[in-house]
Design a protein around this nucleic acid. Structure first.
Length: 261
DNA sequence: CTACGGATGCCCT
DNA sequence: GGGCATCCGTAGA
């Protein structure tokens, strides 16, 4: 549609297209935007732009392409199930638009945005990188440097770390990958309200997003909550977007049998 | 391509 | 002490 800009990375094989979003001043989402039901917010967030300003002034941008709902008291998979309120999940109960960042598996973060509804929040699962890909790669690489070993527990030689390459769609295709790429952690983002925070905010979408290109699917990694809640369609993603962490081919077929054959 | 196991630290019971 | 809204490398098809 609009003119496209080719982004080049220091790696030769690393390039991606980026729409004119890079140049456009988009409207920031204000508090009213977040004061809707969890499911509405999860769908509305698809296509909106996540913007992060790092302490050194670097701007990172990405389009939200995958979200999940955690409904609150009734939802067995939610940390706020049964009205459970703890120091950790308090942001889920704060006013809509509040960021809830928590640590999982001892080494990863996830970021949520609270919505209307007691204890309800939307998990941001995947983002399509648009601006600042170099910095995102650096953040992902540094994460490995910090660990000084790979995930098999072997030490990684420095030379190998610097050679590690990321394709654009591998940078933020998962809740914790996006937190690493965007340098989001508890200390710098938890409990802030996205409608009034200078380091992280959201901007209105330019894409046409509607029921025809949203896939509804089951949530990821919550099987232990039991089949009833694990099978509810509370995950939403943009159809045919490469940055989605896990695709649901069955649901895509149901939605669009002709296009998929 | 999918399946699987291990890392790792903190929260909550 | 159990479990976790994950990720990654390896093994095998």
């Amino acid at each position: 549609m609009n003119e496209e800009l080719i982004f080049k990375n220091s790696n030769d094989d690393f390039e991606t297209t980026c729409s004119s979003i890079y140049f456009t001043k988009l409207k920031r989402l204000t508090e009213d935007y977040f004061n809707v039901s969890c499911i509405d917010l999860a769908k509305n967030l698809l296509g909106t732009i996540l913007v992060r300003q790092l302490s050194d002034g670097t701007i990172l941008k990405g389009k939200i392409v995958e979200t999940e709902c955690y409904l609150g008291s009734e939802d067995k998979a939610s940390q706020s199930y049964n009205g459970k309120k703890t120091p950790r999940n308090e942001p889920m109960f704060m006013k809509p638009g509040t960021l809830y960042v928590y640590m999982t598996y001892g080494m990863y973060y996830c970021i949520n945005i609270s919505s209307q509804g007691e204890g309800a929040a939307v998990l941001l699962r995947s983002v399509e990188p648009l601006v600042g890909l170099d910095k995102m790669i650096e953040n992902r690489c540094q994460y490995h440097v910090k660990r000084k070993r790979n995930f098999a527990g072997e030490k990684i030689p420095q030379s190998r770390i610097s050679r590690r390459k990321f394709k654009p769609h591998e940078l933020c295709n998962g809740p914790s990958k996006l937190c690493i790429s965007f340098d989001i952690n508890i200390e710098n983002c938890n409990k802030k309200n996205v409608s009034d925070f200078s380091d992280l905010w959201l901007e209105e979408r330019m894409d046409q997003i509607n029921e025809s290109n949203i896939i509804s699917s089951t949530r990821i990694g919550i099987e232990s909550a039991g089949t009833e809640w694990a099978s509810k369609l509370l995950r939403f993603y943009i159809y045919e977007n490469k940055n989605v962490s896990i695709k649901d081919r069955e649901r895509e077929l149901l939605r669009n049998p002709i296009r998929n054959k």
